[in-house]
Amino acid sequence: MSRSTQILLWGIGLTFVLPFVVLGLWSVADTWRYPAVLPDLTGDHWQRLVSGQSLLLTGLLRSVGIAVSIALVSTVLGFYISRAIAYHQHQRTWLFFAYWPCVIAPGILAGLVYIFFLRWGWAGSWGGVWLGHLLLALPYAVIVFHPFWTPQIRQYEQLAATLGASRIHIFSTVLFPMAKGMVLIGGFQTFLISWFEFGLTSLLGVGKVQTLPVLVYQYIQEANPYLAAVAALILMLPPAVVLWVNKRFLFTKLV
């Protein structure tokens, strides 16, 4: 690579840090009037998070709770379902349906199912929002895990069965270890689907289920960029850290 190419690539690379810088500044700004380039600093906004004065701490805990449980459930279910699909002779037809919820805008999907959620008393509750998230995350997990079930894997499974291993044994000692990397990726990505979801949460949650993305929007609406920035950063930091540990986690397997 020539020197100028490298400079260019670095320039573009550093652009991607800017969101963290700009939002970081807002999150520690006391007042930041135009045209000041840098704000007066304060730690108050982060303090509010830690002290639990604002809705941020509860929002954070709720978001973590929903996203972690969604990731667990959709990964485990998605793993089994993708196997059931992959072993069917018309697997492509079955897989087609998994794409449906993935290509429809979550907000519009929520608008369409809202009436039924209300009818069954799920709207405005944690359970309802959780189900809504599962509607998005589970099909995605199925798509992610589908390529794992190659004929070769099936042969391993067959071999283990012939050697007398029980069904549980096959899953725990043969299949899961082989799928470990993929399972981690799928788990993290379904976590992110739930962690980032805004439109569906705000509709099905009727304002009662205040996850972090909902809070970001709410703070922007009440012209409070400081707390909006804090909430946005809390959303952005876990992925950034996980990325440092292993980049593969973030790269979608829809490829």
Binding site: Y114, I115, L118, G121, A123, V206, G207, K208
Partner: peptide
């Protein structure tokens, strides 16, 4: 007392959808 965010028209549409859904207890 739980505070929920929603403008006037949103309140109307929430309540109307509830009527359409026939729910017995409002959000």
């Amino acid at each position: 007392l739980q505070l929920l965010s929603g403008q006037g028209t949103q309140i109307v549409s929430t309540l109307m959808t509830e009527i359409e859904a026939g729910v017995s207890e409002s959000q």
